[in-house]
Design a binder for these strands. Structure first.
Length: 585
DNA sequence: GCCGTTTTCGGCCCGACTGTTTTCAGTCG
């Protein structure tokens, strides 16, 4: 069983225990363990065999035992036992805003309900108000929550939340008496999807700010309103929270509302060990409750013995605090490090712009090279190129390049389809004519895990493959990646010197940063590819840079952050080594 | 259930807001 599957089981145990009214620290232990398992950079089987699971922080004897059972047998009687005590519908109830474990359980026990439909009917019939602690407003709130649950998934892609966040931020900053306002939360941490938007502000008069925020354009409903905090739901779907704090609290508040929750818990535990108390108002000495003046986040981290402010993208409690003490993280990739764009489409296949138009915009972005990688023959739905059209396209590229006089370069690339059996869509002789070969799966997503893994392993063994594109095939909020033993695929990529793409399209962001971190540790290079099908799509590369930063990625690990000469040299050498290896395995 | 310069028991991050209640539990982030 894969890490992700194990993590999901642990999370389920946490939720079930919560519904059963277990000790909250016990449920948190399972949540915590799930996150730790997701972030492991070592093989689970190996850890189990060496009996080193309990050495991992957050995994003790009990959970280690359960993980070993899960990995060894694919089953866990303990989990089955919990499932038999809790109707499956109750897990779904927890997704209803305002309904937590205690209330869900109370309703279930008192009224004998266990599905979302039954809960909805009971609220409609006014039966919940019979229960202690429930009233008419609770019923209405639950009904609204159920309705929302049925219409939208509840998470939103970055373009949606970033646009809304920017709009709200501009509004708040423009209000009289507002001294400072910033975006926090998952939007600031550049998470691939967000549930809500967090804003923090300092203002002379909080009431004016609350008023304006509650009545801001695009606010669908106000879901909470106090003297310093206002929560709304936006027409685009996500919620937005604004907190107004005193100026001296700004750094603590911004840090607090940036999260992640797990990072905050870890930081606060650290503060506590060092004799401090940290909340959204201040970092204070425990002994005399005296606040330490912290003008910015760096000062808070420094007081806690962390020499540098941890970049928001890294605040996921994935070892960043420990790393900050011992040398830190690499200089993270910056948008300005990107030198060129690879894996871009043109009107030769399913792109909407010509090669010249895509090249012009790439130059306007200050970049030096562009890899045109249209689809291959089998991608008929996308106007895939056959050998004859490849030759014509390459002639066009030669002509365009001649006009650039060395100041810019278009690379002849291809996004070649990985066929059902792992063979590539083009013969080696044709692949050899490209500067750059990007291989990708575009069909048969429902294939079994073993077969899909074997398919990718065979594709990676082809010496002409330089980059594996969108390695898991996921579409955020729509479909999971295809079943795959990703660890084996990444290990093979490491061995073959094949780079793995970070597809920067905001609905893909594939490879996921959690897996990219593993890949980078294995020495795999990556490449931040916009996979643009239009001129504006070229700018999606920025989303990919953010994801790479979340994976602790430095510029040296990114092919398209290299100067053209280094990239070409790398590609040529890689191909020489791979083809030689194929001849004499 | 995890963890340990608070070490094998007794802690575990912390506060705003809501709704229902009349002093606070539950939810959320």
């Amino acid at each position: 069983m894969e890490r992700e599957a194990v993590a999901e089981r642990l999370e389920e145990i946490g939720l079930l225990l919560e519904l059963l009214g277990e000790n909250p620290f016990k449920t948190r232990a399972y949540d915590n363990a799930a996150r730790v398992v997701r972030g492991l950079d070592r093989d689970l089987v190996e850890l189990i065999e060496r009996k080193e699971l309990t050495k991992v922080r957050g995994i003790g004897a009990a959970i280690a035992d359960k993980i070993a059972t899960l990995v060894g047998t694919g089953e866990l009687p303990y989990l089955d036992g919990l499932r038999s005590q809790v109707p499956p519908g109750l897990l779904q109830w927890l997704e209803v805003p305002g309904l937590g474990a205690k209330k869900a359980r109370a309703i279930h026990v008192a009224l004998g309900l266990s599905t979302l439909d039954e809960l909805e009917q009971a609220c409609g019939a006014g039966r919940l108000r019979e229960l202690a602690g429930f009233g008419e407003k609770s019923e209405q709130k639950i009904l609204r929550g159920i309705e929302r649950l049925r219409t939208r998934a509840g998470r939103y892609l970055r373009p949606v939340v970033e646009a809304a966040a920017a709009r709200l931020l501009a509004l708040v900053r423009g209000l009289p008496g507002v001294e400072r306002a910033e975006i926090g939360g998952s939007v600031r941490r550049k998470l691939e999807t967000s549930k809500d938007i967090d804003l923090v502000a300092t203002a002379v008069n909080a009431e004016i700010v609350m008023e304006a925020f509650a009545g801001a354009p695009g606010v669908l409903e106000v879901t909470g309103r106090g003297p310093t905090k206002c929560s709304v739901r936006l027409v685009e779907g996500p919620a937005a929270d604004l907190r107004v704090v005193a100026a001296e609290s700004f750094a603590a508040a911004w840090m607090y509302f940036t999260g992640s929750k797990a990072h905050n818990i870890a930081i606060r535990a650290r503060a506590q060990r060092l004799g401090y108390k940290l909340n959204e108002y201040a970092l204070a000495r425990e002994a005399d409750d005296e606040a330490v003046a912290c003008p910015d986040e760096a000062a808070i981290y420094a007081t806690l013995g962390i020499p540098r402010a941890i970049p928001p993208e890294l605040r996921e409690d994935q070892g960043e605090i420990e790393a900050a003490e011992s040398g830190g993280w690499p200089a993270l990739l910056e948008a300005a490090d990107i030198r060129g764009l690879l894996h871009v489409h043109s009107s030769w296949s399913d792109g909407s712009a010509t090669i010249a138009e895509m090249a012009r915009e790439t130059q306007a972005m200050g970049l030096r090279y562009l890899g045109i990688c249209d689809h291959s023959r089998s991608a008929a739905y996308a106007g895939g190129l056959d050998a004859e059209r490849v030759r014509r396209q390459q002639r066009e590229i030669d002509e365009l390049n001649a006009g650039y006089r060395g100041e810019f370069r278009i690379l002849k690339g291809i996004e070649v389809d990985i066929l059902h059996d792992g063979a590539l869509d083009f013969p080696d002789e044709l692949l050899a004519t490209f500067d750059l070969v990007v291989a990708a799966v575009h069909s048969l997503f429902t294939m079994g895990r073993e077969q899909q893994t074997a398919r990718l392993l065979r594709a990676l063994a082809n010496p002409y493959v330089d980059i594996l594109a969108h390695p898991t095939g996921r579409i955020l909020l729509q479909r999971d990646g295809y079943p795959l033993d990703l660890t084996r695929v990444l290990d093979a990529a490491a061995e073959r010197g094949v780079a793995v793409e970070v597809n920067a399209h905001p609905a893909r962001l594939d490879l996921d940063w959690r897996d990219l971190r593993y890949a980078l540790k294995r020495g795999i290079k990556t490449c931040i590819n916009p996979d643009a099908h239009s001129v504006p799509g070229l700018h999606d590369v920025a989303y990919g840079v953010d994801v790479a930063r979340k994976a602790w990625c430095g510029r040296d690990e990114v092919l398209n952050a290299w100067p053209l000469e280094r990239l070409l040299d790398h590609l040529a050498r890689r191909r020489r080594v791979a083809t030689a290896r194929e001849r004499c395995p």
